[in-house]
Nucleic acid binder design. Structure first.
Length: 358
DNA sequence: TCTGGGGTCCTAGGACCC
DNA sequence: TCTGGGGTCCTAGGACCC
């Protein structure tokens, strides 16, 4: 059933990791700050706004970031601290709002459709989070996740913007199509090949032309986004479909024994994770990235569900041996999927009941 | 000075069954 | 003996997001 009025908010903690670091190292405030690993292949996890002015951005190789901004303070990431800080922020939000979908450590969507005064509630929330944690939230408000997210992302830091679908469609029309969620570098490039650079041009593009280039389904999806049509729901509970562990070696590895040791370690980790969550998987996959960046995946689905690191390792090793990388390996990963359906699993503490169909 | 790690979703093709 | 179409399960690759 269609809902009369949807009010969705997107909340994003500004420069999250950098903010956590600044909170405990206030003397660094105002300086360009980069959070990045120290290895030769490390990338930037986050940069303060001062560092961003030098062109430093997330996912950029750390070495390049240092070159762009030699005076920046570079800190190694402390994920444990970030998880704690994230918990502080989101538990404050959860005190006020029930329908929350987490979107990573520093973002969430809120469904405030049932709230009589959503904007006032969000104002109070932003103030409270800032007062209690020192973190600044950027907030986008709209009739959909797409409008909310695009608004918060484009007006941050310290954004607080509400827009209707029509306003978003008009406001973002001159912006690059890339601002729309779901349009990444590849799709933007393909669109540019059709002469489509902006959201407005995508709105006005011929549906036939788009369908020809992208297929019916994706074409419809692209144009719906350009007009900010989106009825996806805020889903508070999402059940994971896969878990994985991967490692990029500091230098490429040609030695089979080293690869096998890494694989066994990751398999053990995944087994532990599955047992901790009382979940079991049937599909075991490996991912291998060679020194020339070619990336290959191999998967096998086995008869029985497993949560055993040994079983995962045995299958992963077979897959690796069957593939037999012909070049030095840059990255190696293991993934488990096809989880046992939760409804088929015995629930702890509740006796199993036989339910007959009516 | 080359490009992390953890996920999700989509597509396309093949095997197999009815 | 060939022909057909749909559905499900599985694998591999790719795009995207945080």
């Amino acid at each position: 059933m269609a809902q009369a009025r949807r009010v969705i908010a997107h909340l994003d903690i500004d420069a999250f990791y950098a903010s956590v670091e600044l909170r405990r190292r206030p003397e660094l405030r105002g300086l360009p700050l980069i959070v990045a690993g120290s290895g030769p292949r490390a990338v930037v996890t986050t940069a303060s706004y001062e560092a961003r002015r030098f062109g430093v951005n997330s996912a950029m190789p750390a070495a390049r970031a240092r070159a762009l901004c030699p005076d920046a303070v570079v800190l190694a990431p402390d994920f444990e601290a970030y998880r704690r800080a994230s918990g502080e922020v989101w538990s404050l939000v959860r005190e006020q709002v029930q329908l929350i979908q987490s979107a990573g450590i520093d973002e969430a969507y809120l469904d405030l459709s049932e709230e009589p005064f959503p904007v006032a509630l969000l104002r109070r929330l932003v103030a409270r989070v800032h007062e209690r944690t020192g973190m600044t939230l950027s907030v986008g408000i709209g009739p959909s996740r797409l409008v909310a997210k695009t608004a918060s992302a484009s007006f941050k830091p310290a954004a607080f913007v509400a827009m209707s679908r029509e306003q978003a469609a008009a406001h973002f029309a001159p912006h690059a199509a890339r601002v729309l969620q779901g349009i990444g570098p590849k799709t933007a490039e393909r669109l540019a090949g059709l002469g489509i650079q902006t959201v407005g041009q995508l709105q006005a593009a011929s549906a036939e032309l788009l369908a020809q280039r992208f297929g019916e389904r994706m074409a419809c999806e692209l144009q719906a986004r350009a007009h900010f049509h989106d009825d996806s729901l805020v889903e508070p509970v999402r059940i994971a479909k896969s878990r994985s562990s991967e490692v990029t070696f500091p230098t490429d590895v040609a030695d089979a024994a080293t690869l096998e040791r890494a694989l066994i370690g990751m398999a053990a980790e995944l087994g532990e994770g599955l047992r901790a969550r009382t979940r079991r998987a049937r599909t075991i996959a490996i991912k291998v990235r060679l020194d020339d960046w070619t990336t290959v995946t191999r998967a096998r689905t086995i008869e029985c569900f497993t949560d055993s690191g040994e079983t995962i390792a045995a299958v992963a090793l077979e897959l690796l041996q069957a593939y037999g990388p012909a070049r030095p390996v840059r990255l190696l990963g293991v993934r488990v999927a096809s989880f046992e359906d939760e409804s088929d699993m015995p629930t702890r503490g509740t006796p199993v009941q036989l339910v007959l169909p009516l």
